[in-house]
Design a protein around this nucleic acid. Sequence first.
DNA 1: TACTGCATGTAAGATGTTACATGATTAC
DNA 2: GTAATCATGTAACATCTTACATGCAGTA
Lengths: 196, 196
Amino acid sequence: MALEHAILVSLLEKPGSGYELARRFERSIGYFWTATHQQIYRVLKRMEADGRLDVREVPQQGRPDKKEYSVSAYGLTALGEWLHEPIQPESVRHELAVKLRGAAFDDPRALIGEVERHQRMHRDQLDHYLAGERRDFAVSDSRTAVSDPLTAGGEPPDAGRELQHAVLRGGIAYERMMIAWLDDVLATLRRIGPGR
Amino acid sequence: MALEHAILVSLLEKPGSGYELARRFERSIGYFWTATHQQIYRVLKRMEADGRLDVREVPQQGRPDKKEYSVSAYGLTALGEWLHEPIQPESVRHELAVKLRGAAFDDPRALIGEVERHQRMHRDQLDHYLAGERRDFAVSDSRTAVSDPLTAGGEPPDAGRELQHAVLRGGIAYERMMIAWLDDVLATLRRIGPGR
DNA sequence: TACTGCATGTAAGATGTTACATGATTAC
DNA sequence: GTAATCATGTAACATCTTACATGCAGTA
């Protein structure tokens, strides 16, 4: 169950409440794992009962009190063990591809609007990633960042930052790939006409 | 529930038994949707009860008899309706990325073997896709296929084939992107050293 | 007064995973 | 004889989604 591990990683990066975690799952962690607040609260309780998390009641003014969770020593050990286990490849779920193949039995052109909508969402996501990269990593062009000689032999780099950046570059590469592929799909849909 | 729709699409392309569907989910349909035979049998029963599928008992020699499912008129209508509904973007699940960010709190170098293993799996998948493309679509280089002028104005193209090819090109683009990104990740892991 | 944000939860149902179970045929 | 392939299923459990529920504070 990787949600538990995603929560461990997030709380190691910074302790927080269930609500705060839910918000992080809408942004940074959400780039590679999604969860709703219902899931998060349930799992937090279980992990606290297991002893992988510590809780601290934080009274607040003008806001409801919150429970701030942090990773216990046992939680850190558990994460370490998981890191050394091999994981099997992710199972793929691409609903749009299902639709694309289904479109052959309907009117393929009717899908054009939907594909354009998805492409816009991917463009927005890409812009969001690039803005985050400029803000947090001060890189002008992520395409050149991979083998930038300026960072190759300098001061000792921060492992956490470097890894976060690498994950973000993955998100950027994914969105660019999707945008290009959806261009290809749109060209195909326009070429094949109204169908059956 | 997209498993139902994936099954409708697959059975429209060719009727078959639960067992045959399970095998297809290991190959062509499996490129964009996964399901185990247990799921498939459960859903097939429900869809037959709903009237979206027809069944035909097929006695066989030397093999167990099988139930061959095909899409009913109502099933085709149901698929058409689904095709016209917008879908929300897929929720991302990238366990390797979770590990990568978690590695900052452990030894990042310990992940190198695992990342290399994943990269090999993606290379194998890419080879598999490219072999399938050569076999089924007779294209020498998928990179040029998108805007190949030879196919732009010729005989009337088969919508089903074109769409299947477009989906396959998506799989190819995805694997190439992943292989390149994992190269980037490996370079990052080697650069940042043994960590904390 | 209504909406948004902060904060935490319950409940029901759908979906997905893992393990177990059976039995015949064919290939090595 | 042993394993793999074809063929279908049950049961238990884990996980995920959707809807419902509460209550206070600040803003428009």
